[in-house]
Simulated assay, not measured.
Amino acid sequence: MTQATYLLDTGHTKAQAFAMLQGALSAIQSGNAGAPPPAETAAGMIWVDTATRALKMRNIANNGWITLGSFASGSFVPAGVNQLTEAQAKDALSEVYGAVTGQILAAAIDARVRATGAPVNEAVWHPYDAARVGDGATGVIWDHAMNGNSGQYIETPELSPGEYEYRLYLIDVQTNSSRSDITLEVYIPDRSEWRDYGTILSNISQDRDRRYTVIYGLSGPFLTERGKSTIDRSYYKYNRVRINAGSYLRHGTVVLVRRKTYFPLDLMP
């Protein structure tokens, strides 16, 4: 660690000039390290302040020092860097920049990559009953291997269609009725009644070798009646759906998944 003069003296002998050059190069190599500031300064000059264990740079006006960071802890810590909170680090839409600790970084990564035990990332499709990654939730609401024949109806738990979008997966299903349709019905709590929502599968064969897989999406909190261009918001708001299998399903699995919706569906005209 050294400091030296950078001013040339035309009266130097060769030996003196060589010694001056050696001193200047040593000072540059060490970042002008020393407890007092260098006597000769210039804009942009670097100084390793050994008294405060800080890295400093001379300002453009050459009348003061800017602290770039500290190495008092044994590692370099940049000065003036904003420290992000865990919530800021996890916010995918945040435009706040800054440093994070290893602990906060790990929590943020866990939330995005679905590490076991992390809260479910609700912005992506996930089993409707999942709260944390790896908690065993599957979203299955009926499985022939576990439940046997379905009966005519397979009903979902209560939904929040204004808050979430939903998908129903009918996987490898097979009906007991020949040439039948599988339809979806929605429950209108204000009317205490089920109403037809639409056909999921039509004209299904009873052939034992024929099985069907389909994905059906539910994206809004309101049901528009066929033939009408407007929505009666109270009359058509639903909170449950059910599959009407006609007779019953004798094979397959039905799974319900959801994801958070950020579109203000309640503001629909």
Rank of each mutant, 00 (worst) to 15 (best):
134 G>W: 04
134 G>F: 02
182 I>H: 00
135 D>H: 07
138 T>K: 04
130 A>K: 04
180 S>Y: 07
132 R>L: 14
140 V>I: 15
168 L>C: 11
169 Y>D: 10
141 I>R: 01
166 Y>S: 04
182 I>V: 15
145 A>S: 15
180 S>P: 02
156 T>F: 07
139 G>D: 04
141 I>N: 02
181 D>R: 05
156 T>D: 11
132 R>H: 03
155 E>C: 03
133 V>K: 02
154 I>H: 00
130 A>Y: 00
148 G>D: 09
144 H>K: 15
176 N>E: 14
148 G>Q: 12
142 W>V: 11
145 A>M: 10
142 W>K: 08
181 D>I: 04
172 D>Q: 10
155 E>Q: 15
163 E>A: 13
135 D>K: 00
167 R>F: 03
136 G>I: 03
151 G>T: 07
141 I>S: 06
181 D>E: 07
158 E>S: 14
177 S>N: 09
171 I>Q: 10
140 V>S: 14
176 N>L: 13
166 Y>Q: 02
141 I>P: 04
176 N>P: 01
133 V>S: 07
144 H>V: 12
159 L>C: 09
143 D>F: 00
135 D>G: 06
155 E>H: 05
167 R>I: 08
155 E>R: 09
136 G>R: 09
130 A>F: 03
139 G>S: 08
150 S>Q: 06
163 E>S: 14
174 Q>K: 13
146 M>K: 14
175 T>R: 06
163 E>H: 12
144 H>F: 14
170 L>P: 07
175 T>P: 01
137 A>Y: 06
150 S>C: 07
131 A>M: 07
146 M>Y: 06
163 E>R: 14
164 Y>F: 15
168 L>S: 10
174 Q>H: 15
181 D>H: 15
176 N>A: 15
169 Y>K: 13
165 E>M: 13
146 M>W: 01
159 L>H: 06
160 S>F: 12
150 S>R: 00
159 L>F: 12
152 Q>A: 11
157 P>C: 11
153 Y>T: 02
145 A>C: 04
152 Q>R: 15
178 S>V: 05
144 H>A: 12
140 V>D: 02
165 E>Y: 03
134 G>L: 09
157 P>V: 12
181 D>Q: 05
168 L>Q: 02
143 D>T: 03
142 W>D: 08
